Amino acid sequence: MTGPDHFHDAAVGAAAVFALAAVWRWWVLMRRLAAAAGAPEASRTAAGAAAAAVTVCTMVPVYALASLASLVWVEWAPVLDLARDAYEGLVLTAFVAMSVRLARSAAVPLPGAARAVNAARIYAIVKPAMAALGIVGALVPALGWEEGVFGWTSLWMWATLANNAAVSYAMAGLMGIYSVLHHDLPPSARITPKLLCVKAILFLAFWQGCLIALLAHFDMLPATAHYAVEAVEYQLQDLLMVVECWFLALAHEHAFILDAPPSIRASAQHRSRTSDAKWIAASILTIKPAKLKTE
């Protein structure tokens, strides 16, 4: 009988600390965004942009808690990661919606909005679809999933290429929007930090996954006392993601909290937590790729 897996226990403990810290910083940011959206001087467009920002920033608790749960329940990691991947597409859609609303509020024409919307829709479909295919491939060996194998017969490799194509197209759409907004929006819009927050999580999630797969492919990722190399891949990815969520929460504060004046930031402390929670939930549920408009 093997002894306790100290690496796994330490990873879970560290991930729990970082996840709780990240969720707390997210909640503080959400209450300040709620205060900004509910301020009397806030326009309808500004309130809509704040609602879209909620969906973008909520990637912090979604990623942190899903990754922590994957570390605790390793056998359910593929399913939990599927939920995380599905939300990733929603984040991209929300950022496009926020950019469109910021452009409207400043009366800035946005010719690349239609392309960015289409790219967001494609990515919102491809990303979770490929994750679901991975779960099916793991359950049905005859499909030739072969995770971590870079070969023509590896379904995993083709799914990875599809993900890469979708994220590249989505990033191209985002950069098209950014090239316009960066020059035409005032510095107070802080469009560059906002874009970097979105790009960071998308690229970190994808490329570090590819790097971990390469390490496993070349036998540079050892198994532990209780888990095979495939499980260690998931655990390492999840641990890195939780730690990164803490830094991402700090980056979100820099990118979004400074949008609100000090009076609004201070008023967030006196607002109803229940009403703020309802506004946060409603903001997330209103972002739907199929209903995103560009006019």
Results as ranks from 00 to 15, higher is better:
residue 238 D to G: 00
residue 250 L to C: 15
residue 258 L to N: 08
residue 96 V to A: 10
residue 25 R to E: 14
residue 74 V to I: 14
residue 104 R to V: 05
residue 195 L to A: 04
residue 71 L to S: 00
residue 116 A to M: 09
residue 130 M to W: 07
residue 152 W to H: 11
residue 48 G to K: 03
residue 181 L to A: 11
residue 106 A to D: 06
residue 287 I to W: 08
residue 105 S to K: 10
residue 22 A to E: 07
residue 106 A to N: 03
residue 277 A to K: 06
residue 121 R to F: 01
residue 167 V to N: 05
residue 82 L to Q: 04
residue 169 Y to H: 09
residue 52 A to G: 12
residue 170 A to R: 03
residue 198 V to M: 03
residue 86 A to D: 11
residue 48 G to D: 13
residue 178 Y to I: 05
residue 203 F to C: 04
residue 124 A to L: 03
residue 35 A to I: 12
residue 8 H to W: 07
residue 288 K to Y: 00
residue 290 A to P: 00
residue 211 L to H: 01
residue 209 G to W: 03
residue 131 A to Q: 15
residue 269 Q to G: 07
residue 76 W to T: 04
residue 168 S to C: 01
residue 157 M to G: 00
residue 67 S to K: 05
residue 217 H to I: 09
residue 108 V to Q: 05
residue 213 A to P: 11
residue 205 A to C: 02
residue 197 C to I: 02
residue 230 E to F: 00
residue 147 E to M: 13
residue 83 A to E: 02
residue 190 R to V: 06
residue 39 A to V: 02
residue 57 C to G: 05
residue 256 F to I: 08
residue 236 L to C: 10
residue 289 P to C: 01
residue 115 R to W: 08
residue 105 S to Y: 05
residue 226 H to F: 08
residue 167 V to I: 15
residue 30 M to C: 08
residue 225 A to K: 03
residue 44 R to K: 06
residue 215 L to M: 15
residue 214 L to G: 08
residue 38 G to V: 06
residue 21 A to V: 13
residue 203 F to K: 04
residue 192 T to P: 05
residue 129 A to V: 04
residue 226 H to P: 03
residue 275 S to I: 08
residue 236 L to W: 12
residue 181 L to D: 01
residue 245 C to Q: 12
residue 12 V to Y: 08
residue 70 S to R: 10
residue 57 C to E: 04
residue 41 E to D: 15
residue 92 L to V: 15
residue 162 A to V: 10
residue 92 L to T: 13
residue 155 L to H: 02
residue 190 R to H: 07
residue 216 A to K: 11
residue 78 P to I: 12
residue 88 E to T: 13
residue 244 E to W: 12
residue 141 P to Q: 07
residue 279 W to A: 14
residue 291 K to G: 04
residue 188 S to I: 09
residue 174 L to A: 11
residue 258 L to H: 12
residue 66 A to S: 13
residue 13 G to T: 00
residue 277 A to Y: 03
residue 290 A to H: 12
residue 13 G to I: 11
residue 92 L to Y: 09
residue 28 V to P: 05
residue 110 L to G: 05
residue 251 A to Q: 04
residue 35 A to L: 06
residue 42 A to G: 03
residue 145 W to V: 05
residue 37 A to D: 12
residue 5 D to W: 00
residue 9 D to T: 13
residue 58 T to Y: 14
residue 237 Q to A: 14
residue 76 W to Y: 10
residue 255 A to V: 11
residue 154 S to T: 00
residue 63 Y to C: 03
residue 41 E to W: 13
residue 105 S to D: 15
